[in-house]
Every structure is written in structure tokens, then in C-alpha cells.
Design a protein around this nucleic acid. Structure first.
Length: 431
DNA sequence: TCTGGGGTCCTAGGACCC
DNA sequence: TCTGGGGTCCTAGGACCC
């Protein structure tokens, strides 16, 4: 049977800025921006800032004068806080509609299966009020027949004053106009590259795309483009996901404030990134089969240098020292001296649940011992803070070559040991 | 001077095999 | 002069998203 359910996209307005305003109501009266990790780019803007013409992801140095002239609050990001508020928003929605009806799409967005379309608009308005009352976050709601149309509708709801943040185009005569007024690059999944290709064949608006032959778009773009055409016609091609999909990759990547040049600096940076990624992998109880390492010089310069290498292991692992070894192997193959590196990253892939790791054909006993040690390290780091215990770079340790763990000054082992539970004896035996 | 990070999916082209 | 060809697997990189 054809699925006639109405789909809503709920999107928090200027999410990071709205979160900051929840913490500090004085910010309500000022323009606000939130910056990316090392304060490089603007990743969230209040309406006032958008009106100034400041674009998303623009580097701060290009607009700093303009922002300061307008008394803008320029804030570093605080992702943990935003995650917490995101959870509250999603829970507020779930309370009414149930777990099954909500698909969390990103930190500030969720698709909702509204069921039969009759009461959609009332539900949308109710949710908007409820989320505002319970969390202080303003949201917009777009209702339509498919995800792609819901995204598009939400976009209009957010921009247009008349809609008051909730718009239902499920079965509306205005849909045609809305499609006509939407440039093709604003459609979900059509970026500026794809848009250029579409312009060449005379497809400029969402309406043009909807009226295109599917095979023609399949040929010009790809299978996703073809599905997008059908979605614009009201045919569901991107299904509603009731269960949260397992993560497929875990990445830790960073730009360096100052470029790094030496082998040793870069190796330490990359191994450090690997440790951060493993930390999250172990927290999520996952194990990886592959690791990718990449290193890059400044991508805005002409002599941009970028290399990556993937290592596919024959077995899965969640052991820090093994992932470190894999990382190091990749790194050694791609590092070239005489470059000014600006960015690097480590990506873990081929993830499965850690309890699904099969036994090692050889060295099973050793593997088990490493598991125990890794668990203990996790516990110590959880109790006493990150990097209380970590893998040593044995190359940096002079004659301590056989020692695989380094106890940081933060935690003195003798005082720690009595507090440990039954694992302690295991730990002693291991060392 | 100063340009994010974490994801997903797709694809061109090389290596290898028969 | 002329240099198979198809399938498969893999890597590296691109496009897109928030």
C-alpha cells in the first residue's frame, strides 16, 4: 500500500546561537555568532548577522571588522552544551509523538512521521510551542509528502514571516509556486557542483527538476538525483528510518594553529588523533577493521599537498596499541619532509560491535590480556581524567623500550592501586 | 598573519586475475 | 606501425550534508 503519511522536518533556528542565548539571555538583544573549533570560521549566526550579509562558514578574519562595528557577540563553540540541549529538544518532541515517530537527523534536526495528514498543521504548531516552553529553543516546522519536500517547506517556513514558523505544503496549491521559487541548488542533496550541471541542461528551479525526465537526471547526475526528482513529485524514495543506524566511521581530524614540519611532530600529532578516535570507539563499544590516515598542507595555497593511506587489517580491533601500530604504518608511507603541514586526521572504519570480535587464530591469550589492560586503562581515564594512563611513544622513551604504558604525573600508581577493584590484581599481573 | 569537524555515499582509475 | 578484455577489488578523492 502506498505510504500517504505526512512527513515533518523540525529544525532548530540558528541552533548554536539559540543555545548560547538560553545560557545568557542578555545575548537576545545583540547580534551573535558562534565559531568553529579553533575560532577559525563562523558556524552559527543570529538573524541580525545574517542580515549583515555574513555567510555560513566564512572565516572570522574576513568579517571581524563588520561584526565588531555592529556590537556582535563573538563566541567560541561549546559542543557538549549544544548536545545536551539537543537531547532536551528531541525528548520534548518524543514525549508527544513517541520514539517510533521521530528520526533524529542531526544535532538540530529531526524528521517526524505524522501519520495521516489531517491534523498535521495543528501538531506542528503545538510542537513549536511546546519545545519553546520546555527548552527555550525556537524551531521551524515544514510538512509535506516526502523528506525532500519537507526540507524545502521548512526552508520557506523559516524565512517567511507569514507562516510563523510552521508551514504545511502536503496538499497545498502553493506547492507549485514554492517549487518555482526555489533555486535548484537549495534542494536537499543538490550542491553547487550538481547545480551547475543542471543549469547546463536548462534545469534552474525545483519545479524544473520535478518536471524533468528521471532518466535524464540519472544520466546528468546519479541515482540520488533521480530519486530526488521522484521525491519532488511526492513519491517517497528516502525512507523514514525508525531505528538509529550503526555508525560506519569514527574520525578525528584537526587543523594546526601553527604548521608542523618535522616527522616527529607529525607522528605525535597523528598518533594523538588515533588515540582520540579510539577513545570514542571504545566508549561506543565498537571495533574497527581499517584505519585511514591523511596529512595536508594549506589547502588555500597553490602547492597544496594532500596524501592519505588506508590500512585494512585481517581482523577487527579496539585495542589502542594495535590501532596505533596501524596508524603509524600508514603515516610512515605518506609522510614527506620539507612540507608545512596544516591538517591531519585519522579515520576508523569497518566498524562492528566490539562483542562481535572473533577470537584470534594465534596469540589469543595475549589478545585477551591486552583486552584486560585496555579496559583498565579506560576505567582509570574515566575516573581520573583523559590521558591519566596512555600508550607511550616508545621511540621517545629512551631506554624504557619494553614498557608499554606510561603513567602520567597526574596519577601516582601506588596511591591509585588500592582504590581499584578486582581488576587491580589483573593489572599487577600484567605489568 | 588569519580559512572547522564529523559524517555518508559515489566513482574514476589502477592492480590483478583469468 | 599493431599491444585483449571483462570482472573484481581496492584506493584515493570528490560531492554532499549539518
Amino acid at each position: 500500500m502506498l505510504d500517504r503519511n505526512a512527513i515533518a522536518l523540525i529544525d532548530c533556528n540558528n541552533f548554536f546561537v539559540s543555545c548560547e542565548r538560553v545560557f545568557d539571555p542578555l545575548l537576545e538583544k545583540r547580534p551573535v555568532v558562534v565559531l568553529s573549533n579553533n575560532d577559525g570560521c563562523i558556524i552559527s549566526r543570529s538573524d541580525e548577522v545574517k542580515k549583515m550579509g555574513v555567510k555560513m562558514a566564512v572565516p572570522l578574519f574576513k568579517v571581524r571588522d563588520l561584526l565588531e562595528k555592529n556590537n556582535t557577540a563573538i563566541l567560541s563553540s561549546n559542543i557538549e552544551h549544544y548536545c545536551e540541549i539537543s537531547r532536551r529538544v528531541m525528548n520534548s518532541i518524543r514525549e508527544n509523538l513517541g520514539q517510533e515517530a521521530v528520526e533524529v537527523y542531526s544535532i538540530d534536526e529531526a524528521f517526524i512521521d505524522l501519520g495521516t495528514p489531517d491534523k498535521s498543521e495543528e501538531v506542528g504548531k503545538y510542537l513549536k510551542q511546546k519545545v519553546w516552553d520546555e527548552t527555550g529553543i525556537p524551531i521551524s516546522v515544514g510538512i509535506a509528502k516526502t523528506k525532500t519536500l519537507a526540507k524545502l517547506t521548512n526552508h520557506i517556513a523559516k524565512k517567511s514571516k507569514k507562516t510563523e514558523g510552521v508551514l504545511n505544503l502536503y496538499d497545498s496549491p502553493y506547492l507549485e509556486t514554492a517549487l518555482k521559487q526555489t533555486p535548484v541548488e537549495k534542494i536537499w542533496g543538490i550542491g553547487h557542483r550538481n547545480a551547475k550541471r543542471l543549469y547546463k541542461i536548462g534545469v534552474n528551479t525545483a519545479l524544473d527538476l520535478r518536471n524533468s525526465k528521471v532518466w535524464k537526471i540519472r544520466r546528468t547526475l546519479n541515482v540520488f538525483g533521480a530519486r530526488t526528482v521522484l521525491e519532488l513529485r511526492g513519491e517517497k524514495c528516502f525512507p523514514f528510518e525508525r531505528t538509529i543506524a550503526d555508525k560506519k566511521t569514527i574520525a578525528h581530524t584537526r587543523s594546526f594553529g601553527e604548521p608542523l614540519t618535522t616527522y616527529r611532530e607529525m607522528r605525535n600529532a597523528v598518533l594523538n588523533f588515533a588515540n582520540r578516535a579510539v577513545e570514542r570507539m571504545r566508549r561506543d563499544r565498537l571495533a574497527a577493521k581499517s584505519v585511514t590516515v591523511f596529512i595536508q598542507t594549506n589547502r588555500f595555497k597553490d602547492d597544496h599537498f594532500s596524501r592519505s593511506r588506508i590500512l585494512n587489517s585481517i581482523y577487527h580491533s579496539n585495542l589502542p596499541h594495535e590501532i596505533n601500530d596501524w596508524t603509524l604504518q600508514c603515516f610512515k608511507e605518506i609522510f614527506e619532509s620539507g612540507k608545512e603541514y596544516k591538517k591531519a586526521g585519522v579515520i576508523l572504519s569497518g566498524l562492528i560491535r566490539a562483542d562481535k570480535i572473533t577470537n584470534r587464530l594465534f596469540e589469543n591469550e595475549q589478545f585477551r590480556r591486552w583486552q584486560v589492560l585496555a579496559d583498565i586503562m579506560d576505567e582509570l581515564n574515566f575516573r581520573y581524567g583523559r590521558d591519566t594512563v596512555k600508550l607511550a611513544n616508545i621511540w621517545d622513551m629512551g631506554n624504557a623500550k619494553s614498557l608499554h604504558t606510561l603513567i602520567n604525573e597526574k596519577a601516582e600508581l601506588p596511591t591509585l592501586m588500592p582504590e581499584m577493584d578486582s581488576n587491580t590484581s589483573e593489572f599487577r599481573r600484567f605489568l
